[in-house]
Amino acid sequence: MVRIDCRLKPAVELNREIRLAAERGEGEVHLIHPEGRHNLAVGILAPVRVVVCGTAGYYCGGLCDGVELEVHGDAGWGLGENLMSGRIVVHGNAGSAAGASMRGGFIRVEGRAGPRAGISMKGGVLVVEGDVGAMSGFMMQKGTMIVCGDAGEGLGDSMYEGAILVAGRIQALGNDAVAGDPEPGDLDLIRKAGLDPGLDWKRVVSGKRLWHFDKKEWDLWKIAL
């Protein structure tokens, strides 16, 4: 196990050290004293386990493929952006745009997430055990977002595909987002994530009215604007 003190090096070097440790076959890297620093564990393309021992700043775990990341604190905005595969668990809250553009893998936020959680998701599973902020799931294209708490306004706005499962209250759906009952596969996923399938789950998907947008369809303009 390797320990790296975040106070002593810039993020570029920290991340290089994690990559080198992974290449050497080290199973686990601990980042100590993170103290809200940005860009921790970014661009890690190996199945190494990274533990952030405290609170991380922006873009933690971004651009990773295969990483197993655990944050013992909170994460700032842009958590796990563009995750290709792997697993990220935050034992706290996440800021804006958690799991933005993620293409695969699994992200779990045990607290709440800020606005735009799962924006432009392209795959994978994002679980938020608390509430998510406004415009979450905006332009989502694939994958599943699971929200155990409440969702802010504009949920699933302009989403193309994928599904958002919400157990709490939805403040307002976004443009062309439609809420319905969960499917059997959804409940399996919820169970697999260790969550209670007995909660009042709603499944939010695209209404697909914006898929074939014709500028002469005035009613759609009203929805879009």
Partner: peptide
């Protein structure tokens, strides 16, 4: 507007969160 500024104040179990829009 950055966690770095509040992180030194955080004791064990104290969390930061981001409020929603508006």
């Amino acid at each position: 507007n950055e966690t770095t500024a509040v992180a030194p104040l955080l004791g064990e179990g104290v969390h930061v969160y981001e409020p929603s829009a508006g």
